[in-house]
């Protein structure tokens, strides 16, 4: 008994390691052997959010059309900036031809973009901007920024509340990951958007880290202290959907208007059903598509503009159905 367990276990260990590599080998489908297509890497913040899955879908469609070998990678958690940096470092080692990056830290990813520069790999920034001052200080160059104007999206949401409520109204803001460029711009835009409407008061503004369960918990807590709240702005849909659940649980569905950001499929359904007020649509699929298309242009030596805007619009009950494309 005792003498037989160990060889068995070592066998299991070997099988596990070799098996995993075999799986891995199948997965990549023979990257370097016969494939002469250009290799485009898309590194997003995380793949457990519909927003980035949509972006992945758009990028994959474009990759098929343009005959590009697309590699999509992400950290397990959006807050793990260092892990995203490691992924980029590792991809640099595989000599990808071009890198599209949705940075999970606007300043923190600047050093690794510098590394890509030194390795001669062009970098396209998607969705969230790199911090301009830091990039300039480090002498880091990027080919373009493909994304929506998050500030403008926030402003549109604010203006929507202004049109919606004409009497004195209490509002709540659910912020994203603190210190993050995208979330900051959205919230800043929102605050500027409601400035012309003195009847609107933000009574609480709390971070919920872009996560659905945090959105739920924070909202649930705020409902206890802020009983007269009529509107919620969440700087992404995950938090908005979490907040919506909390409102549903409190039996106040319809009494509190929730406006989110990103217009993911689930949010569109809630809007169409009349449970959620609106969401700012960023069109991540278009971002992914534009990222790959412009990556190919950069590879071919074509000039691309510094900023490629992706249209922004407010999805409301009138425009929610059908979803885009």
């Amino acid at each position: 008994m005792k003498t037989t367990t160990t060889p068995w276990l070592i066998g299991a260990a070997l099988a596990a390691i070799l098996g995993s590599l075999l799986t891995a080998g199948c997965n990549r489908g023979g990257q370097e052997t016969s494939d002469s297509r250009p290799r485009v890497a898309l590194v997003v913040k995380t793949l457990n959010s519909p927003f980035f899955l949509d972006m992945q879908r758009g990028a994959e469609q474009a990759a098929r059309q343009r005959n590009v070998n697309l590699i999509v990678q992400a950290a397990e958690r959006e807050v793990d900036v260092e892990r995203q940096m490691q992924i980029v470092e590792n991809l640099i080692q595989t000599h990808v031809d071009v890198l599209c990056l949705a940075p999970s830290g606007s300043k923190e990813l600047v050093p690794v973009v510098g590394k890509a520069n030194r390795a001669g790999i062009p970098v396209l920034i998607v969705d969230s901007k790199l911090d301009e001052a830091t990039a300039k200080h480090d002498g880091v160059a990027t080919a373009t920024f493909i994304g929506s104007d998050n500030y403008e999206g926030g402003r549109i949401a604010g203006a929507h509340f202004g049109a919606l409520f004409t009497n004195a109204t209490d509002l709540i803001v659910l912020e994203g990951i603190p210190g993050h460029e995208t979330a900051d711009s959205r919230v800043r835009g929102f605050r500027d958007g409601i400035k012309p409407f003195p009847q609107l008061h933000v009574v609480a503004s709390q971070p919920a880290d872009n996560e659905r369960d945090k959105g739920f918990n924070v909202m649930q807590n705020l409902l206890q202290s802020q009983r007269d709240v009529k509107g919620v702005f969440a700087s992404n849909d995950m938090m908005a959907l979490g907040a919506l659940e909390a409102i549903r649980a409190a039996g106040k569905l319809g009494q509190i208007k929730v406006v989110g950001f990103d217009a993911v499929d689930e949010a569109r359904q809630e809007i169409a059903a009349g449970n959620m007020e609106a969401s700012v649509a960023q069109n991540p699929e278009a971002m992914g598509r534009l990222a790959v298309e412009n990556a190919v242009k950069v590879l071919n030596g074509e000039k691309v503009p510094d900023y490629i805007p992706v249209a922004i619009q407010l999805v409301t009950k009138d425009t929610a159905t059908p979803p885009q494309e």
């Binding site: 068995w8 080998g25 997965n27 992924i87 590792n90």
Partner: peptide, 30 residues
């Protein structure tokens, strides 16, 4: 690093790393 180089999806990476931890300890106990 290797899983990134091999372009393994980030979901599968987590499964593999968890497996390695368990196998390492099983071997140790053996």
């Amino acid at each position: 690093n290797g899983l990134n180089l091999l372009e393994v999806s980030s979901f599968l990476q987590q499964v593999i790393i968890g497996t390695v931890i368990i196998v390492a300890v099983l071997v140790d106990m053996g």
